[in-house]
Structures are given as structure tokens and as C-alpha cells.
Design a protein around this nucleic acid. Structure first.
Lengths: 314, 314
DNA sequence: TTGTAAGCGTTATCAT
DNA sequence: ATGATAACGCTTACAA
């Protein structure tokens, strides 16, 4: 059996309170007794029981992460970032693979709740009402990655859209394109819409290319259908376009489809660069060039936020 | 605050003992009281505290996994397998990324030990004396993946060598090669040596190709140096060889180096297929074709073993 | 500086 | 069928 604090106390001929004090560097013991206690700990090979500690301290030093899939590079990168930061701050991380299955997800949230994790990171899935209710009951900080909620006030981490759009567009320009268009999503959309158009515009102007609103085809959302419908419009208006920055991968894939129907070859006639998700991009034919998002840093950031929120709550 | 079993007891007008009974389906309560208790649980939104449970039951329903790196497809696949099986059996998994750093590794083992995980899976690193001592002190099942220990009696999971070698060789044959050689490791080696030669031979014979021992160059280990030294010997003996199955990626990389020095072009003049590790293979120039190992299943299997061992220990 | 004792939220052993 | 109550291993007032 593992030695307990009792055993250490006995061996060092002090009370368990004293052992606890030296263990946690709380004031109230002489150097002498400290030495004796440390010696006893050493002799017995004592290891504090984090479970017992967790019970009294009401924190477990653990955060839970919910992925729709732990396989795939994307999740691995994010997890890498989370793990690194968490351990740096003295926390462990429990991974859960929900397989994007609602019941499974709910079960996992339940498990993490019973295990009394100190926080939660929720990746890439939509936050349903059930999920949110469960989060509320847990009463611990929850941070979203690669997703966000309009209905519920949950903090999330995503990339700097303007910058990413800028990078994407610049990439196209550096490839020699001079006439580049954009298939935007909803420009009203504060979270994802405005920034991307902004970045697109900046890249063009910085490269000394002319910018005109007519090179940006906007829509009301970021879906496949938008890409499908708007690609023809854009190409019709500007047949000289040789490259397109799409504000989402779904739009990009839609555009590729539309191009196919029009007999326009991708990427020979027109290059298309997407944004966002990767998953879609990877399985698309032909494969899409996509802005690589700093997944590792997103994991890092989300962890930082969770831990920060926790501090504030206590 | 979270409601406790006390609150439930009060609300249901029973003792905590009774609540505990219905919670754990232990005999000793009427249907009536069960209903009352369940109702109270529902009303209060009670969630059992797994930490407290863990303290008295001496098990946490958690297993720890130590990776040298959580990024990369390999780890992601293994983790995927571990996670799936663990949750299936009602366990959670804590991931630790040791970065192949001994001090970090030791610290993580310590953390997992204090957290009282019920088992450990150790991936891809050599088991040093320090590690093993730490494992012993923990007193929980430890299973190795993608590594093994000759000094210490630790169970491990690896692939069916003969079958994998067979597959690799067959792949070469299907690519049209008729003269294929093998750079073996130590044939005395029961764990990895014999099986691979076996598989190689079988693939050849099954394809109707002749087999002769002279097409297999053996050595005493599986290192880069073995590949470097033995590739010339083999090619010297059989200049007509157009493809080689290497018993390890290290050997393969060594062979590639040797080929480079001899002015033999890989893979134009000779194809080389490796085995094992991937990491090396990925970073090698030119990139190596490698037998893909069923990483997910290895994670699954290792988890099964840990849990099985745990049952036996109790 | 040090020890005693009351929790933390469970399970499990007794009684009743 | 049910209820006290003693663990489990620790932290933390409160005393001494």
C-alpha cells in the first residue's frame, strides 16, 4: 500500500498537520522538523494523494477537452497546444472523443462533471441547448475552439481573420496573380465577415493592385450554396480573374463545383484558395489550398483563458 | 455549490446510506424509497462526486498515457484507439507529452502517480531504470506501445511481424520487382528478428519467386550502421536486385545513405521499403515507403491489457 | 512551533 | 429495509 501522510507523521514523530505544512510550504515549522519530515518522506517514498487533496481543495488540477475526433492532424495540433500549456500551469488534461455524437457528448460532459474537472475546452462542434445546460450546471469555465455560439455567451478562440485573409490573398499575389476576386461570406457578420474582406483589400492595395468592390461577391452566409451561386456571378462580371480567395472552405468547394460545370479548370484557369476548416479542404477534389491556422497556439490560448477564468471565479 | 449526497438524503427524507445504495444498485431499499430518491436526485440535479468516490474506492477510473510527442499522426492514431476503448470501459484518459525529455517524463509519471491513475500506457520511448523504478512504486499496470524492454518485465503491444514483413515484401513484388533482397536485423532476436525474415520468405515463395538465404543480409542489430554496412554487401553479392525490404527504418535509412555513396539512385535504381517507426521515415530524404502499422488497434489493445491486468491485481 | 479535530463527499460495516 | 458511523487521505482553523 502507498504510505500516507499518517505514516510520514509517525516516522518523523510529528503530527500530520506539521507534515502537511512542510508539504505545502505553509509557515509554522522549524528547519529541524522540516528536515526530519523530508527525510521521512524520502525514506518511505511518500507521494501525496491528489485525490484526497482534490476532495478538500475542491479542485482537481485537471481540465477536460472534448473533440469531435481525436484523430487527424487538426485535433492533434490543438491537443498539443492545450497539453503543453496545461502542464506548464500544473494541470493535466483528459481527452474525450465525442465522434460528433450528441449522446456521447452529453455522456462525456457528465463524466467530466463528475470527475470535477476545473475547466472545459470544447472543440469544433456546435453548442446545442443540451450542451449549454450541462455546462451551466458544471459551473466551471468553458472555452470554445474553432466554433462559437451566438445563442450562448461562451468565450472562444479563433484566428485574426483580417490577418489570415491578408495572408491568403498575398499568397495568391505572390503566385503571380494580378486579377484576384473574392467570394465573401456575410459582410454584416462581425465575427468572420468584415475582417476577411478587410484583409483581402489590404493585401491588394499593398501590392499596388487596384481594388474595387465589384471584385468581391458577397452573400448572406458561408455555405457551399453560396459558393456555387456566386462563382458564376463573379466570373461573369470579371472574366479576367485568375485567382479567387474564398471566405470559407465551403464556399471554395461550392465555387469549384460551379467552375466544373462551366468548364473552367481549377487550378489551371483559376486558382482558388479557401479558409477555415481543413477537413472539407482535404477531401475536396481537386484539393484546396487552405490557410493553415495556428492550431497549436489556439490550444494554448484556450487553455490560458480557461485557467484565467478559473482564477477570477475563486 | 453542487448538491451532495447529503442534500439528496434530506430531500428524500432518507439517510445518505440509502441514497448511496440506490445510486450503486446495492440491495436494501424498497421501490418506494427508490422512487423518492431518484426524484430528489432529479430535482436537485445531483451529480455524484467522482473524487470522493475515488478516495474511498481507491480507483479513479482514469488511465495515463505518456507520449514522446502528441503531435503527428502516429500519436493521434494511437491516442484515438486508447481513448475509444478506455471510454468504452468507463475510463478516462489523461494525455502527457514528454517531448522525449527524461526529466519531464519523470515529472509526468510523478503527477500521474499522485493523481492515482489506475494504469499507464507508455509509448515509443525506451524504459530507463528511473522510469521503471517509478512504475514499480506506482503499483499499477503499465503497458508499452511501439517499444519494449529487455531489462524489465513489461508487457508491450506490437504488430505481427511476420505478417507485416509479408505485406511489405508483397508490396514490392506487386510493384513489379522480381529480384528483391532483405536487410535483416538480428535473426536471433525472437521478438523482431525471426518473424520478419519469415514473412519476407513467404511472400517471395507465394509469388512464385525463388528464395535463397543469400538474398538476406543479416546483422546483429537494427541500426543505421547495419544498413550502412550491409547494403553494399548485399548489392555486391546480387547486383541485379531492384528492391529491398529493410527490417527497420533505421536500417533503411542507412541503406539509403550507402546507396548515395555508391552512386545508386533511390528509388530509381533500387526501391527500399522500411518498417517500424515512421518518424525516421518521414524525415528521411528521399522519403521512405513504410509499412503502415495499425496504430489505432495498438492503442485499443494496450488499453485492454492495462484494464485486464488491473482486474487481476484486485 | 506544534498538535487536535472538524470537515471534504463518498462507501461500507454495523446495528436496528 | 433503513440509519448511524467509521473510514478514505488530506487541509485548515483553533488551541496549546
Amino acid at each position: 500500500m502507498n504510505p500516507t501522510i499518517q505514516d510520514v507523521a509517525k516516522a518523523a514523530k510529528v503530527s500530520i498537520a506539521t507534515v502537511s505544512r512542510v508539504l505545502n510550504n505553509q509557515p509554522g515549522f522549524s528547519e529541524k522538523t522540516k528536515a526530519r519530515v523530508l527525510q521521512a518522506i524520502e525514506d518511505l517514498g511518500y507521494q501525496p494523494n491528489a485525490v484526497a487533496r482534490g476532495l478538500v481543495n475542491r479542485n482537481t488540477g485537471t481540465i477536460g477537452v472534448l473533440f469531435p475526433s481525436v484523430s487527424g492532424l487538426l485535433s492533434a495540433e490543438i491537443l498539443f497546444g492545450i497539453e503543453a500549456r496545461a502542464h506548464e500551469e500544473g494541470y493535466s488534461v483528459i481527452v474525450c472523443n465525442t465522434a460528433a455524437n450528441p449522446e456521447k457528448t452529453l455522456r462525456y460532459i457528465q463524466v467530466l462533471s463528475e470527475k470535477r474537472v476545473d475547466g472545459l475546452i470544447f472543440v469544433s462542434e456546435e453548442v446545442t441547448e443540451d450542451y449549454y445546460k450541462a455546462f451551466e450546471r458544471m459551473g466551471v469555465p468553458v472555452v470554445l475552439i474553432l466554433t462559437q455560439s451566438y445563442k450562448y455567451p461562451l468565450p472562444y478562440v479563433k484566428v485574426d481573420d483580417a490577418h489570415a485573409a491578408y495572408t491568403a490573398t498575398r499568397h495568391l499575389i505572390e503566385c503571380g496573380h494580378e486579377k484576384v476576386g473574392m467570394l465573401s461570406g456575410n459582410p454584416e457578420e462581425l465575427l468572420a465577415g468584415v475582417g476577411r474582406i478587410e484583409g483581402f483589400k489590404r493585401a491588394l492595395l499593398e501590392a499596388g493592385l487596384s481594388y474595387s468592390d465589384s471584385y468581391v461577391e458577397t452573400s448572406t452566409s458561408f455555405t457551399f450554396e453560396d459558393g456555387l451561386a456566386n462563382f458564376p456571378k463573379l466570373m461573369n462580371r470579371h472574366p479576367d480573374i485568375t485567382a479567387i480567395f474564398a471566405a470559407s472552405d465551403e464556399i471554395a468547394v461550392g465555387a469549384v463545383s460551379a467552375a466544373y460545370k462551366l468548364g473552367i479548370s481549377i487550378p489551371n484557369d483559376v486558382s482558388i484558395i479557401g479558409y477555415d476548416n481543413l477537413k472539407l479542404a482535404e477531401t475536396s477534389v481537386p484539393p484546396l489550398t487552405t490557410i493553415s491556422q495556428p492550431f497549436q497556439r489556439m490550444g494554448d490560448k484556450a487553455t490560458e483563458m480557461v485557467l484565467e477564468m478559473k482564477k477570477i471565479m475563486m
